[in-house]
Protein backbone atom coordinates (compact mmCIF):
# COMPACT_ATOMS: atom_id res chain seq x y z
CA UNK A 1 0.00 0.00 0.00
CA UNK A 2 2.47 2.56 -1.12
CA UNK A 3 1.07 6.01 -1.30
CA UNK A 4 3.41 8.80 -2.22
CA UNK A 5 2.29 12.20 -1.09
CA UNK A 6 4.19 15.32 -1.91
CA UNK A 7 5.85 17.18 0.94
CA UNK A 8 3.32 19.98 0.49
CA UNK A 9 0.22 17.85 0.78
CA UNK A 10 1.65 15.99 3.72
CA UNK A 11 2.25 19.23 5.56
CA UNK A 12 -1.20 20.50 4.75
CA UNK A 13 -2.87 17.28 5.91
CA UNK A 14 -0.95 17.19 9.16
CA UNK A 15 -1.81 20.84 9.79
CA UNK A 16 -5.45 20.04 9.16
CA UNK A 17 -5.26 17.14 11.58
CA UNK A 18 -3.66 19.36 14.20
CA UNK A 19 -6.40 21.94 13.85
CA UNK A 20 -9.15 19.35 14.01
CA UNK A 21 -7.55 17.79 17.07
CA UNK A 22 -7.66 21.13 18.87
CA UNK A 23 -11.22 21.69 17.69
CA UNK A 24 -12.34 18.32 19.02
CA UNK A 25 -10.40 18.81 22.26
CA UNK A 26 -12.17 22.04 23.15
CA UNK A 27 -15.35 21.63 21.19
CA UNK A 28 -16.60 18.16 21.94
CA UNK A 29 -18.10 18.76 25.38
CA UNK A 30 -19.69 22.10 24.37
CA UNK A 31 -21.09 20.35 21.31
CA UNK A 32 -22.79 17.66 23.41
CA UNK A 33 -24.09 20.25 25.85
CA UNK A 34 -25.49 22.34 23.00
CA UNK A 35 -27.09 19.30 21.38
CA UNK A 36 -28.70 18.23 24.63
CA UNK A 37 -29.71 21.72 25.59
CA UNK A 38 -31.51 22.36 22.32
CA UNK A 39 -33.16 18.96 22.19
CA UNK A 40 -34.43 18.56 25.75
CA UNK A 41 -37.98 19.75 26.01
CA UNK A 42 -38.02 22.12 28.96
CA UNK A 43 -34.68 23.77 28.18
CA UNK A 44 -32.68 23.85 31.39
CA UNK A 45 -31.04 27.14 32.24
CA UNK A 46 -27.28 27.27 31.96
CA UNK A 47 -26.56 27.50 35.68
CA UNK A 48 -28.64 24.41 36.26
CA UNK A 49 -26.83 22.69 33.42
CA UNK A 50 -23.32 23.30 34.73
CA UNK A 51 -23.62 23.38 38.52
CA UNK A 52 -23.01 20.09 40.30
CA UNK A 53 -25.63 20.81 42.96
CA UNK A 54 -29.04 19.27 42.62
CA UNK A 55 -31.63 21.90 41.92
CA UNK A 56 -35.27 21.15 42.40
Amino acid sequence: MALSLSEDTRERVSKLLDVSRVAVHYGWIPFILYLGWTQSLPRPNLIKLLSPFPTA
Binding site: L35, G36, W37
Partner: peptide, 8 residues
Protein backbone atom coordinates in the same frame (compact mmCIF):
# COMPACT_ATOMS: atom_id res chain seq x y z
CA UNK B 1 -32.39 16.74 31.90
CA UNK B 2 -34.30 14.70 29.40
CA UNK B 3 -35.14 11.05 28.88
CA UNK B 4 -36.01 10.90 25.23
CA UNK B 5 -33.59 12.00 23.82
CA UNK B 6 -31.49 11.05 26.81
CA UNK B 7 -29.37 13.90 28.03
CA UNK B 8 -27.44 14.03 31.26
Amino acid sequence: FSLNPAFQ
